[in-house]
Amino acid sequence: MSTTPNPAVAQTFMVFATLRDDTDLAEFAALRDDEQKQLEVLRLEGRIGAHHVSPARRATFIEVVAADEKHVAETLATLPFARFFDADVYPTTPPDAAEAAHRARS
């Protein structure tokens, strides 16, 4: 079974996640390379789009492409950092024409 979302049924979600106060920062730092590698795998599969980090606010924003929120959770669970964050998932509207054209070129 392919993990790549079918563009015809996939939706985009914005995930806002904040670092938990009880995070072991040494353990967190030790997993940084693994996190980056997994993000790249997910990008290549078309499951992750934009990813932004706000260290000052201990937050991250991740665009996830999935059929539904259950699949968003499954995608997030593959990330090594997932256990350190509390995430809120927001469904977004379909991309406008410019964004759709950009995605088609990617």
Score class of each variant (00 low, 15 high):
Leu39Arg: 11
Ser54Thr: 14
Pro55Cys: 08
Leu19Pro: 02
Arg32Leu: 14
Arg58Glu: 11
Glu63Ser: 10
Arg83Leu: 08
Ala29Ile: 02
Asn6Thr: 05
Phe13Asp: 02
Asp34Ser: 15
Gln11Trp: 00
Glu45Trp: 06
Arg20Ser: 14
Ala30Ile: 09
Asn6Asp: 15
Glu45Tyr: 04
Ala17Phe: 02
Tyr90Val: 07
Ala8Gly: 01
Leu76Lys: 03
Lys37Thr: 12
Thr92Glu: 07
Asp33Met: 13
Phe16Arg: 12
Leu79Thr: 05
Gln36Met: 14
Thr93Lys: 11
Phe81Thr: 00
Thr92Ala: 12
Gln36Pro: 00
Ala26Glu: 15
Ile62Tyr: 01
Arg20Leu: 08
Asp96Asn: 15
Ala73Cys: 03
His52Gln: 13
Arg47Ser: 11
His71Thr: 01
Gly49His: 08
Val53Arg: 15
Val53Trp: 07
Ala73Ser: 05
His71Ala: 15
Arg47Ile: 00
Thr23Ser: 10
Ala50Leu: 12
Ala30Glu: 10
Pro94Leu: 09
Phe85Asp: 06
Thr12Trp: 07
Val9Gly: 00
Ala87Glu: 13
Glu63Tyr: 06
Thr18His: 09
Ala104Gln: 10
Ala8Ser: 02
Asp88Lys: 14
Asp24Phe: 13
Met14Pro: 00
Asp86Gln: 12
Thr4Ser: 14
Thr92Leu: 14
Met14Phe: 10
Arg47Trp: 01
Thr3Lys: 15
Asp68Tyr: 09
Pro7Arg: 07
Ala82Leu: 02
Gly49Arg: 09
Ala29Glu: 10
Asp22Val: 07
Phe61Glu: 06
Leu25Thr: 13
Phe13Leu: 02
Ala30Thr: 06
Glu27Trp: 04
Val89Ala: 00
Ala73Thr: 11
Val53Asp: 09
Leu19Met: 12
Ala10Asn: 00
Ala100Cys: 03
Gln36Asp: 11
